[in-house]
Design a protein around this nucleic acid. Sequence first.
DNA 1: AGCATAAGCCAACAGGCGTTGACTTGTCGC
DNA 2: GCGACAAGTCAACGCCTGTTGGCTTATGCT
Lengths: 176, 176
Amino acid sequence: MQFATNGYERTTIRAVAADARIDAAMVMRYFTNKETLFKACIRQDPLLPDLSGVPTDELGLTIARTIVLRWSDPAAVGLLWATTTNQETANDIHTNYRDQIAQLAARIGPPEQALERAALVGSQIAGLAFARVVLKLQPLADMQLAALAARIAPVLQHYLTGDLGLTGDLGSMIRR
Amino acid sequence: MQFATNGYERTTIRAVAADARIDAAMVMRYFTNKETLFKACIRQDPLLPDLSGVPTDELGLTIARTIVLRWSDPAAVGLLWATTTNQETANDIHTNYRDQIAQLAARIGPPEQALERAALVGSQIAGLAFARVVLKLQPLADMQLAALAARIAPVLQHYLTGDLGLTGDLGSMIRR
DNA sequence: AGCATAAGCCAACAGGCGTTGACTTGTCGC
DNA sequence: GCGACAAGTCAACGCCTGTTGGCTTATGCT
């Protein structure tokens, strides 16, 4: 997929057409313009599987495993990344992901904290995908999936169920 | 800064020149081409201040405060973001940042873990900057600096000094 | 077979891009 | 004043882009 590897700007309709062994005019006939073509490429599937059976204290690890597995595919991350060039589509996609996590967070804790917890979870996931797949930053890029999941699992768990330190001081987590 | 707000591809030399109330040919005379101009724009200053006087168990919060403050400036984050389009410059910049943190990590823990710990810290920082400034994802985008720093401080602290769960299981952090 | 519709191809358009080179204007030291 | 050199302007180049319209070929229905 051209959009995934090159981003929106550097992807040309001619290149997409050539990939599909088709004329560029055909692409235009079916998608009318570049933006529509792009939006058609990034239709999103659900981020998380059904987690209702998972014990609360294993959510972090379960999510970590799912996410690390899915977002080790450069095509998936690249596509997600390409949304950055279009503020509108970026907002759609990422608030959707955030809300999926927020729904989960609302079930296991105070609903008024759900959005914030979800956004924090999302920030760690996005940062990891970015560093690992886009930047190929070592040693993250070469780590095994299981090890990687184990590293971020406690953090996701903390964001979901831990003490956020609402008073602004260090919070209980550090002092322990 | 055009590169910061529009990224590399969408920034035109003509626009940069117009910003500076100068002819485009002048830009070429001084920077020879677009890539050189870009590299000149992203010269990096040190990520962290001197942290030698900070107690080990307050490193997370101190770093969090510094980073959140610095990377709330959309221009700074945008510029960092623009590096993504050029794999080479992206690698230069981000490994540099990682190594600064790794140096710190090596002073307070096993040196063989320093790179990994630093990369994890970096992933959380990058993810937060991305979600907050590029994506403007709520509620992160509107949170106060102090609150934001307090949220990620425990995580940075954990990545720097905590148990990484090297065996691949949940690690001590969750079970506590 | 005949025909409507889809699939596919080709050439071209208008516009924007990075980049170039020739040219004019200002600013110094002497 | 005068020559050297930097600063600045202008028009144009070749190229690539998204997009268009007209043309030819295949496909399937009656």
